Amino acid sequence: MRAFFLLWLVFMLMTIGSRIYAQDVLVKGVIIEKGTNIRIALGVITNKHSGKAVGSNDLGIFNLKVNLGDTLLIEKRNFVSQQIVVNSNKDILIYLVRSSVTLDEVTVKGKTKIEDLQEIRREFKRQGSFYEGKPPLALLNPLNGSPLTFFYELFGKTPAKARRFKRYYDKELQLMQVDNFFNKTLVSKHTPLEGKNLDKFMLEYSPTAEMVKHWNNYDAVNYIKLSAKKFADTLKN
């Protein structure tokens, strides 16, 4: 009986200990297309231990509660999935490798990304969606309009896909515009940052699409230098 009690006590202590060390932390991360500085929106991040999942926002950023040691599965259509183990509560940078671009029967290879996106938009038009799911009210005019086209664009399956893709297309263009002025090559050229500090700087000081809308190269370099100085000051604290 005493031996049984001791075994039970050891088991309880181990259980309590494991709960103490299973630290529940909020992890922040960002998903980026490898080889570029383009953020990946609508990625799915799943905690394989708890089964909880979240999506990345328009800037590729996500927040997820995990225990240290949990494994995260990062997935995004047309990208190679990746798994990482959470070892700390520091920000996570995830670089996904693009696979072939596929949308239903549309497969576009060997072109630049913008050409890929434009080709998919043209394919939707070839499939009969000329207004990308957003028809003008003028189509309702029974004399010189086309009411059938109007309602097809609103409720048809292909226009619905075209409408979703248009939102994705617009976001990608914004991210590419940011990448033109804020990328690792340019930052490395004008700052001494490297390694983890460079990654952290890229995550924390990335400008918005609205900010870079009217930038030229001088504006970009000036922003990078000023931001790098602020970042360096935070490292001293």
Rank of each mutant, 00 (worst) to 15 (best):
V30R: 14
V30E: 08
E33T: 02
K34M: 02
K34V: 02
N37D: 12
N37I: 03
R39G: 06
I40V: 12
A41C: 12
L42R: 09
L42P: 00
V44P: 03
V44R: 13
N47M: 09
K48N: 13
K48H: 10
H49K: 13
G51I: 01
K52Q: 11
A53V: 04
S56H: 09
N57E: 06
N57T: 06
D58G: 09
G60N: 01
F62A: 07
N63T: 14
L64C: 04
K65R: 15
N67H: 11
G69F: 01
G69K: 01
D70A: 04
T71H: 06
L72C: 06
L72A: 04
L73E: 12
E75Q: 12
E75C: 00
K76D: 01
N78Y: 01
F79C: 02
F79Q: 00
V80I: 11
S81Y: 08
Q83D: 08
V85R: 10
V85A: 08
V85E: 13
V86S: 05
N87K: 15
S88W: 05
S88H: 07
K90M: 13
D91A: 14
D91E: 14
I94T: 05
I94D: 03
Y95T: 08
S100G: 03
T102C: 07
V108P: 00
V108G: 01
K109M: 05
G110Y: 03
G110T: 06
K113W: 09
K113G: 05
D116H: 05
Q118I: 01
E119F: 08
E123N: 07
K125P: 10
R126Q: 09
G128Y: 06
S129Q: 01
F130M: 11
Y131G: 05
G133K: 01
K134F: 15
P135F: 10
P136Q: 15
A138Q: 11
L139P: 11
L140G: 03
N141P: 12
P142W: 07
S146V: 04
P147Q: 06
P147W: 09
P147H: 08
T149W: 00
T149E: 15
F150H: 11
F150R: 06
Y152D: 04
T158F: 02
P159D: 00
